[in-house]
Design a protein around this nucleic acid. Structure first.
Lengths: 192, 192
DNA sequence: ATGATTATTTATCATATGATAAATACTTTT
DNA sequence: AAAAGTATTTATCATATGATAAATAATCAT
């Protein structure tokens, strides 16, 4: 029996909403560690999302296809949670996939078991409520950026706010994340 | 003592997550009914959001200014919940305002009192977790639309999915919601 | 009802970004 | 190290949307 190391997860939880030792054990009992090498899909398009991931090491992206064009919806780095919300919270199959951009180690949390745990561990429900709140605020801010900033403004805020994205993610993925083509991004970067 | 009529709120709650009678009473005890005439601000820019509203009658929008230009972030119609998430969930003052677009009646829920109720009424916490999940899914879908659909595609989906917006909301507000200028929207509408 | 204000449309010109193609640069595999 | 495959940049041309201004239409206040 391999002991699961959820230290990074526990540390991250403490910064959001501390939970009891009993809840921590219950949570860890529904976790599995999974590893994906660079480029591999963690979850496929068409699959119904029943797992919430925590990034222990590496980076992943959520992506989908529009008119056969690969579009990156989001990136998640170490210590972030990842799930395809539109599937997880509706029970419908997802039109999106999750892919490892680097060799990545994830902690996989079984969402059905987690939702059951909420009945007996209210601190876990509160923790995940707060995690959703944080994700929600992030997407609201992202809408603001996409709604009325120019591509150049969006690129510059990314450079300023999350330079890691530009260091660790191929530009072809960054471009669609910013809502532009790769060629446009290259042009914007070229301007001094 | 005026009895508060929260029938619409109760009905809406039932469709999301049924709660006990005790929770329903507790919730109603922290609610107030408030009315705003057309054009009036429900909450001002710079104010820290401590209220979650439920739209009983009318429409509101959340808006802010970018370079002195009025931008509509979202609309909410009857039976929807409204709050400026980026302030409510962070405790920071909001850069956004809430405005009544028609004569509007809202049910105002005191968020601090609500968060306290969560300690004793776990079904209320679950209800609001689900409300946040729904809002989160909506914003994720909105990002998808802003990220790679053309202005014309966005206008047409709006026409198809929420025709009420185009019937009840002045086009100048709809334009910025779609991420375009009013003149562009007018041009797109003109095309047969 | 009348005039004043506000909202919407139409027109013209400017510009940012898209589409396509080709040239480099960088990685990976053998 | 060479070859093959990817990723990025550069160039050219096309187009959707922006900016501004002016005309029309709708709404509001007296």
């Amino acid at each position: 029996m391999v002991l699961l190391d959820v230290q990074e997860l526990s540390d991250q939880i403490k910064t959001i909403h501390p939970i009891t030792l009993s809840s921590e054990k219950a949570l860890s009992s529904i976790c599995k560690e999974v590893a994906f090498s660079k480029g591999k899909n963690v979850q496929e398009i068409g699959h119904t999302c029943k797992t919430i991931y925590f990034v222990k090491k590496g980076v992943v992206r959520i992506y989908y296809f529009k008119d056969a064009i690969d579009i990156t919806e989001s990136f998640e780095f170490e210590n972030a949670f990842v799930a395809r919300a539109e599937s997880l919270f509706t029970g419908k199959p997802s039109r999106k996939a999750i892919q490892a951009i680097e060799n990545t180690t994830l902690i996989a949390i079984d969402s059905n078991k987690l939702f059951k745990l909420f009945d007996t561990h209210s601190d876990l429900e509160r923790l995940f409520r707060k995690i959703i709140e944080i994700s929600y605020v992030n997407t609201v801010n992202r809408i603001e950026s996409l709604q009325f900033n120019t591509a150049e403004e969006r690129y510059k805020s990314l450079l300023k706010d999350t330079p890691d994205v530009l260091k660790r993610i191929p530009l072809k993925y960054v471009a669609s994340y910013l809502g532009i083509t790769q060629v446009s991004l290259s042009r914007i970067r070229g301007v001094k």
